[in-house]
Nucleic acid binder design. Structure first.
Lengths: 166, 166
DNA sequence: CGATAATTGTTATTGATCATATCAAATAGT
DNA sequence: ACTATTTGATATGATCAATAACAATTATCG
């Protein structure tokens, strides 16, 4: 096939059987794929969250648990895990860790001795308060800086709608 | 009927040391956390993608690789992996799978015998064409249905901006 | 030139995340 | 009272992400 008859330009430059070599790749239609930009953005957001939260050593998942416990004291593990989309088996180790750090406690329910009632400790409340300040002041603030406050709010609304209705 | 003083229900039940028990939890400030809604939405989007793509057995990551190879034939593994944010070691098994299904081929580069030049096969191109139709017609279309086309476009732009600038 | 450094694809390995099956204890349903 | 269900828990497997190391090749630069 095509031994080597005359060829226009490419002939003189490395035969161009292979591309420019240091040219950035063309991302093409990938840029319009919602799932693609969402995955990339999500990793960036979580990474930024972790950097902001570094002094408190709290992951996004841990922070969400503490927030939920503060707003809903006295619920059991199944309820909390379910509303966060965490499977009960995987929630056990997570709680172990939070309890080991004395951010919350498991207490046997008086009405149903199978279940554990979850509550924040004072230390948990104090840490959560500090965490909230970091998130609002450094994390969400940075996102507002990048997107504009109105857009940030609109973005959250759209994402919530997807999570609800898709 | 007014509440009879005799049995206001909750009054006599467990003194409310523990909550309503079947009331949904209040997610509170979690609803305003960008990272939270983004993670939830992202899982939904990928899940929907997988359902739509079920007949072709293509994951979002595999689809993105095929898209990139179509638009950028003849690049090597490092280049493709890097632009997708995949680490080179993890990209090997991914390519093995795509090559085993005969969607693409690794060819030794003529100019640098260390690297493998990647190209779609005819089967790969045909499958990608079918995949694109499914994505546009059933996946992205559904997202436009939920958000409105203008909002879907705006959403992608904002997510791309986060991925770029955060 | 030739010694050394860097790059490419690859393997091995570890840790994190996610999902399923199963269990004992307790409760609910009949 | 007997059965079914629920709760927290354990064990385990699957998938994904990250690091180190290696052989082959190429680049660098005295």
């Amino acid at each position: 096939m095509r031994g080597a008859p005359s060829k226009p330009k490419a002939e003189l430059m490395a035969v161009a059987a292979e591309p420019a070599a240091d040219t950035p790749l063309d991302i093409g239609e990938l840029a319009d794929l919602l799932g693609y930009s969402m995955k990339r953005a999500q990793l960036k957001v979580f990474d930024h969250f972790l950097r902001v939260m570094a002094p408190l050593h709290l992951t996004p998942a841990q922070f969400s648990v503490l927030l939920l416990l503060e707003r809903n004291p006295g619920r059991n593990q199944t309820e909390v895990a379910n509303t966060l989309g965490i499977l009960r088996p995987n929630f056990v180790a997570m709680l172990d860790s939070l309890e080991a750090r004395e951010f919350c406690v498991r207490k046997r329910s008086s009405s149903d001795r199978r279940s554990h009632v979850l509550m924040l400790t004072e230390k948990g409340k104090a840490t959560l308060a500090r965490a909230k300040k970091l998130v609002a002041g450094k994390h969400e603030a940075r996102l507002s800086e990048v997107l504009g406050e109105d857009n940030r709010v609109a973005l959250v609304q759209m994402l919530a709608k997807i999570a609800r209705e898709l």
